[in-house]
């Protein structure tokens, strides 16, 4: 039973991470600060998030100045960010900890170019500021980022993607 619950928790967390990746995709399309951060990333860099170490990651790819959600979960990302435990994943996905706090508390496993880690954490700060309600965001982030577009626009873009209007790019097309 415990094994089943763990499995269910992993699947649930990965689903949320899929939504987070849709969020990164949406925010990077509209937010100039994120776009500026992305200018330092090599073209076609794939960044993946996994709820557990051996899980299949949800990925985004940097292309033409923005991140795009990647459809398939079987690719090997250039940068893989994974949680060391499912509880650590819950804490971030439920807005108890920010990604930066998880990083500072050694709750994450990071494979890939660490020179991009500062920029990634700043991007995630901004993504969190769009995805989470303000009362959570205030608690999570020490400095409140100034949002450049409305949260509704980001929510709308994420929801339309989830409904299938934006299916993401397939790895073969990259």
């Amino acid at each position: 039973m415990k094994k089943l619950l763990y499995k269910a928790g992993t699947v649930f967390s990965q689903l949320i991470l899929d939504i987070v990746c849709q969020g990164i995709d949406a925010v990077s399309k509209y937010d100039r600060v994120v776009q500026r951060e992305l200018s330092g990333f090599p073209e076609n860099t794939i960044m993946g998030f996994s709820a557990v170490m051996d899980g299949k990651p949800s990925c985004v790819i940097k292309k033409n100045g923005a991140f795009h959600k990647v459809k398939d979960h079987t690719i090997q990302p250039d940068i893989l960010i994974s949680f060391k435990s499912l509880k650590a994943a819950y804490a971030v996905l439920l807005g108890i900890d920010s990604v930066k706090t998880a990083y500072l508390n050694y709750r994450l496993y990071y494979k890939g170019d660490l020179m991009l880690s500062a920029a990634i954490l700043r991007i995630m700060d901004r993504v969190e500021s769009y995805l989470f309600p303000d009362f959570i965001m205030k608690r999570l982030l020490s400095m409140k980022p100034v949002r450049q577009v409305s949260k509704i626009l980001i929510y709308g873009t994420v929801i339309s993607s989830l409904l299938g209007f934006n299916k993401g790019v397939s790895y073969e097309n990259t």
Binding site: L80, K84, Y106, L108, Y109, Y110, K111, G112, D113, L114, S117
Partner: peptide
């Protein structure tokens, strides 16, 4: 070396 870069991995 590029293939082993990262943190706690």
């Amino acid at each position: 070396v590029e293939s082993v870069m990262g943190m706690d991995h």
